[in-house]
Design a protein around this nucleic acid. Structure first.
Length: 279
DNA sequence: ATATTCCCCTGGAAGC
DNA sequence: TGCTTCCAGGGGAATA
């Protein structure tokens, strides 16, 4: 479900609700998530602590606490993970996995039907304690480090399709299937093209369209196709801005009705593109 | 080492 | 109205 803009939308909402709040308890439904859940460790690491900030790195959320202890909370929403605030335990629902009780009695609830999400504790300074997928993240796409020159350096020794390259979180952190498709369309690059066959100039164009698409999506509160919603249940509105994602058979926005968008499968994920204007 | 394929899980939509 | 099949914003393990 959530890529960088969706996670950023959730982060902003959580930051407002959690910062300065003390956690007083934790209930767990008993089911494991992406990885087996160490409920006692999770409880020990969060209860009786005050949240100082909610940050984002790639598609991960990081919860910081306002004391000297090193433990932080690391959350990945997977495909269907979401948060909401409820007034009491009577409001808990199917697929609610974790409920943190705050000082005002309200519950901060993590819900995840497909259980691809994950919640973990890590001690901020210990590199080895970080989950592998987290410690190997590439640069943030909205940072200066994510440039055509940077991509060119990595691309030289690789032959995979440019789209799979963008989805690799160790190359760049936070781009997922929707925004990879959209950024490639905006850049006029065929998703099937081998990454080492894309010129430096076009890689510069591509990093530019990735940044632009992500920024625009953040401004829209993300993209809701079916599941995604923010803390208050609100949906993301970038869906109306999509050019190719989910548009199989529809007219290409650039080429018109005689050149439909095509859907193919790359590395098990749907790719949408215009064979006429993406080269 | 790099690049696919399969798998984890539930639910909704589409097809028959 | 079923029942079956396919599909989904994720990543990681297993396999070529």
């Amino acid at each position: 479900m959530p890529e960088l803009p969706e996670v950023e939308t959730v982060r902003t909402a959580l930051q407002l609700v959690l910062t300065g709040r003390r956690i007083e308890g934790l209930d767990w439904c008993g089911k494991s998530l992406r990885w087996p859940l160490a409920a006692q460790e999770l409880s020990d690491a969060t209860v009786h602590r005050k949240v100082s900030a909610v940050r984002r790195r790639g598609k991960y959320l990081i919860v910081d606490f306002a004391d000297d202890r090193p433990e932080k909370l690391l959350i990945h929403l997977g495909m269907t993970g979401s948060f909401r605030m409820v007034d009491d335990v009577d409001s808990l629902a199917l697929h609610d996995h974790l409920a943190w009780r705050l000082e005002d009695g309200r519950l901060w609830v993590f819900n995840d039907p497909r259980r691809f999400g994950s919640v973990a504790v890590f001690a901020g300074t210990d590199y080895r304690s970080l989950p592998p997928g987290f410690r190997e993240l590439g640069p943030e796409p909205l940072s200066k480090a994510f440039s055509g020159r940077y991509l060119r350096r990595l691309a030289k020794v690789r032959k995979q399709p440019v789209k799979s390259f963008l989805l690799d979180q160790s190359i760049v952190a936070g781009v997922g299937n929707i925004y990879a498709n959209e950024a490639l369309f905006e850049a006029g690059i065929n998703p099937l093209r081998r990454i080492n066959r894309v010129s430096l100039h076009r890689l510069e164009v591509l990093t530019g369209t990735v940044k632009a698409v992500l920024l625009e999506a953040i401004a829209c509160g993300g993209t809701t196709i079916r599941d995604f919603h923010s803390l208050d249940g609100s949906e993301g509105h970038f869906s109306i801005c999509l050019s190719v994602y989910g548009k199989d058979g529809e007219a290409c926005p650039r080429c018109g009705p005689f050149h439909p968008i095509r859907r193919i499968v790359q590395a098990g994920r749907s790719t949408f593109y215009c064979p006429h204007c993406q080269h």
